[in-house]
Design a protein around this nucleic acid. Structure first.
Lengths: 251, 251
DNA sequence: CCGATTTTGTTCTCACGTTCACAAGCTCCT
DNA sequence: AGGAGCTTGTGAACGTGAGAACAAAATCGG
């Protein structure tokens, strides 16, 4: 059953330039730390310095950087500008990526105004909404345009990244339209699980999920003493009236 | 069943009620999926159904749920309402958590208006900012108050969760004030690495990092053939002469 | 020129997370 | 009642990630 004979046991069989996902997720953090150091006039930094600035430990940082190549100098450290450029290139932010934002509600507004759209590397080319009362509104130096124009805009500006800031309801349909128009990366703020074909990348940002994760840990911190054991099995035969956790405010 | 008779470390040495972090991060997703099913009038769902709704695979979902207890029925599935309540209780959203938002810029505005603040379970008790021109402004049914009132508010409303939506600059100071006032969980939207003492949980949401991660994958998709635009080592800003790694600079 | 010192890049080991596969257990049908 | 058919819960295999430890390489002082 276990056919492990054909596999070499030693190396982790990393693809040529395949960088582990966990590392990819940290590269932007390193990039920001390097930018901060650079702005502070620091020309050289050790892995220890960088790790502190990025909030990770130095072994992890060195291993992460080693996937990109050998850009440091032993006994010295890393040249801040040089490393910064190498990471930026690896991530792909030395070029500009065209981005559309769909759904100009509160959050869409906020993102549209978010001037330094992260670091350089991204250019918002359109703000789209289907609501006629929003179309034409000016936000910063941009104007909200009709979602119907999506296909033209994607084609004209070679948009490959879409940001969805609609409510949950229309999110999947917006997503489908984006994909059909040729967008292959989507950042989703709507509280739904979007389904996309293979080859399309999705990332999700979800405020309420983050809060709930915090709440879980918070509960365990203050919890133990304050919350007595929950009854084993409330009478649930067809009833939806579950007991409130003891010690809480009576509902 | 919990105690293996042999000395083998059969169970993964999980602490009594310690749920793996990866699982904790998915519980809110399951909770939302269950709520959707419930709203759709579905009373019972198999792990397959739930997994589909949550966008994970069913084995993972079953294993995740198994950390909470045995809430399913073999041959049948899970009672949607019952499971929903159990997960909500485990996360801690059967009670209300008081939340303050600090930094009422674009994003703070958006969050303040975000009516169904996620699901139930969280109550925004104050919007704070240090800018006098903002203080007093009404947002929804709330009013922006002076950040100086933080300590009083935290004490009065037993606030344990703080949301930082300030720019990067003041974020660490705001964070310190929150911690000093007694807040033990922080959701940070500012693009900085915050440092906090042990016992305080931090989660970070960072738009530009998410975009950069997408860009990385996007680059590799369209990459190899389509983008001849990236030179090996351009003059970055015409400023810096990169030291060659092996360059012997004579002293 | 050589050895001491510093710091990287890498290897090794362990822990965590995911997926598979299947026994246990429940319901339903005959 | 008893077996057939599902579906859960979980043990085990597998893959990925984190951290410790160390050899390799560079600088610097003598």
């Amino acid at each position: 059953m276990t056919r492990a004979s054909s596999r070499r046991p030693g190396p982790p069989t990393r693809t040529e330039r395949g960088i582990p996902e966990a590392t990819v997720a940290r590269l932007p953090v390193y990039l920001r730390a390097l930018t901060a150091l650079s702005d502070g006039g620091i020309a050289t930094a050790s892995s220890e310095d960088l790790a502190t600035a990025a909030g990770v430990n130095s072994a992890k940082l060195r291993k992460d950087l080693s996937y990109l190549g050998s850009y440091g100098t032993r006994g010295v450290g890393y040249d801040v500008e040089y490393l910064r450029y190498q990471i930026a290139r690896e991530i792909g932010v030395t070029q500009d990526w065209a981005v559309v934002i769909v759904g100009i509600g509160n959050l869409g507004h906020a993102l549209a105004n978010y001037s330094g759209f992260g670091t350089r590397g991204f250019r918002i080319v359109a703000l789209l909404d289907a609501d006629p009362t929003l179309i034409g509104e000016r936000i910063g130096d941009m104007e909200v345009r009709d979602f119907a124009e999506l296909e033209d805009i994607v084609k004209a500006d070679r948009v490959s990244i879409g940001v969805i800031t609609t409510p949950a309801g229309p999110a999947q349909e917006v997503c489908d339209r984006l994909v059909a128009a040729g967008v292959t990366s989507i950042l989703n703020f709507a509280p739904v699980v979007l389904s996309v074909p293979d080859g399309v990348d999705i990332r999700k940002v979800d405020l309420s999920i983050e809060l709930q994760i915090l709440a879980y840990h918070e509960q365990r911190k203050s919890g133990e003493a304050a919350l007595p054991q929950v009854p084993e099995l409330p009478a649930l035969n067809g009833l939806t009236d579950y007991p409130t956790v003891g010690g809480g405010v009576g509902a």
